[in-house]
Structures are given as C-alpha cells and as structure tokens.
C-alpha cells in the first residue's frame, strides 16, 4: 500500500478573476484505480479535471506524475514537446461531447490511427489492423472503418472516442461526463464497456460525473465537490451508503429509485 501514486495533486486552486473555479484541492491516484469526481453543475468538477489534465493553467498548486520511465515529474516543468507526448500516449481524455474529442471529417479508422501516427507508427497495414481491432473492442462493426463519425449514432461516436484514446495504451484516462448526452440503454452499454476496459487494461481513470449511479458502477473512490471545494471523500460505496456531509446526503437522497 505504500507504493508511490501515479498522479499527485497538491493544493490546486483555479480562479477566474474573483470567481473560484476550484480551491485548495489535493488528491492522489494510483495505478488501476478509478476516482469519481461528483457534484452539481458549477461545483468546479470539470475545472478540477482540466487542471489535473493540464488543459487549463492553474492559479496555484502542483501536479506531479510518475512517467513511464519511472521518474516522477512536476508537470509544470515539462517542455511543451514532453507535455504533448504525454497527452498523446500515456494519457487519454474523453470528452462529454464526442465531437470535441474526434476529428469529425476523417474516417473512424483514421481517428484511431492518428494517435498511433503521432507516436511514430508508419506502417499503414498495421495501423489499419490495430484500428480494426479497436473498433471491435468498442463494439463497432469493422465494416464501418472507412465511415466518418458524422455517420455514427451518439453512442457509437462516444465508443469511437474511447477507442481513439485507448489505442496508445495510456495508463491514465480523464473522462468528463462520458455518458452525459446518451440514452439510458446506450449509457448502460457504454458503462459496461468502460468497466470491462478499465478492468482488462488496469487503467487508472478520473471520471467527472453528476450521475451517482455512474460513480457507483465505475469508481473505487470518490470526491464530492460543492462551490469549488471538496466536501467529502472516501470509498465510493461508503460515501453513497453512509454519506456524512449535508450536501452529500442531499445528493444521495435526490436519486430517483426505479
């Protein structure tokens, strides 16, 4: 239990002028661990995710990451080239809206292949084969490899975005409301797929969601945010079944039971 975390964030604060995005947040994530960040709209969860993923400059705080070579680096000290390489290989980022994470005008196969080419793969046949394999892993029929994402349903686009992210075998994936805009049945399929992939690949993931059922299904630990601060944290089922903070109790009590 003492091994070093994959990612450590210390005292992260992000302000937008006088507005607080998130304030003084520290967390660790270990290999193979799924952390859910929950809270309502405006609670700062997406701001926190973007700060962790280096997509948004922090006002204060630091994020360090154990690189593939075993060295732990302060991410503020990476060169631009190192930062881009990290984001293209060892990290993934799954957006709520697949259009934000896909290149909508190129084929499904090219969407997956692009990340491979970015890390130096040049063999067309192999890239296509890998793309094909990943399409089947996310349950998209191989015959759709040359179709553009514009011809895909919302659920398929989201699965394609996941394939595009996972093709380089990242160790850490950031997800922002990955099941957000999907129908319930499509959501269930995606969740099951994500659960399976996280498990098989021993991925670490940080998942932002406002849906407590998604958090329960996917995550080991969770963080509850309100007004930019962390108000409760712990084992996912402990937080959901024995919530302490008044706001967490309100969230849990507000779930509709079927």
């Amino acid at each position: 239990m003492s091994e070093a975390p994959l990612l450590n964030a210390t005292a992260i604060t992000k302000t937008y002028g006088s507005q607080i995005g998130c304030e003084n947040i520290s967390l660790d994530i270990h290999e193979g661990e799924v952390l859910a960040i929950v809270g309502e709209s405006g609670s700062g969860k997406t701001t926190l995710l973007n700060c962790l993923a280096q997509r948004l400059p922090m006002t204060a705080g630091r994020v360090s990451y154990r690189m593939r070579d075993g060295t732990t680096r302060d991410l503020a000290g990476l060169t631009e080239a190192e930062r881009r390489f990290l984001m293209r290989t060892d990290w993934g980022f799954v957006h709520q809206n697949p259009a934000d994470g896909l290149r909508i005008r190129v084929s499904a196969g090219a969407n997956i292949g692009e990340r491979l080419m970015a890390i130096g793969d040049r063999h067309y046949g192999q890239i296509r084969e890998t793309a094909h394999d990943w399409l089947s892993r996310v349950e998209i029929p191989g015959v759709r490899i040359d179709d553009r994402p514009t011809a895909f349903s919302g659920g398929m686009r989201q699965r394609l975005q996941i394939a595009r992210n996972l093709v380089t075998n990242p160790r850490l994936v950031f997800m922002d409301e990955p099941t957000g805009g999907l129908d319930v049945s499509v959501q269930a399929r995606l969740l099951d797929l994500l659960r399976g992939l996280v498990d098989q690949l021993a991925l670490a993931a940080i998942v932002v969601t406002h849906d407590l059922a998604v958090a329960r299904l996917l995550s080991h630990r969770m963080i509850v945010m309100k007004g930019g601060r962390v108000i409760e944290t712990g084992l996912t089922d402990r937080v959901l079944d024995d919530p302490r903070h008044p706001y967490t109790q309100l969230l849990v009590a507000s779930i509709l039971e079927v």
Binding site: M1, H30, E33, H220, R221, G234, L235, R238
Partner: peptide
C-alpha cells in the same frame, strides 16, 4: 486504514 486499504 485508507480507502485503498479497505479495498485490499
């Protein structure tokens, strides 16, 4: 113990 240790 920590949540991770509870999982273990």
């Amino acid at each position: 113990v920590s949540p991770r240790e509870v999982i273990a």
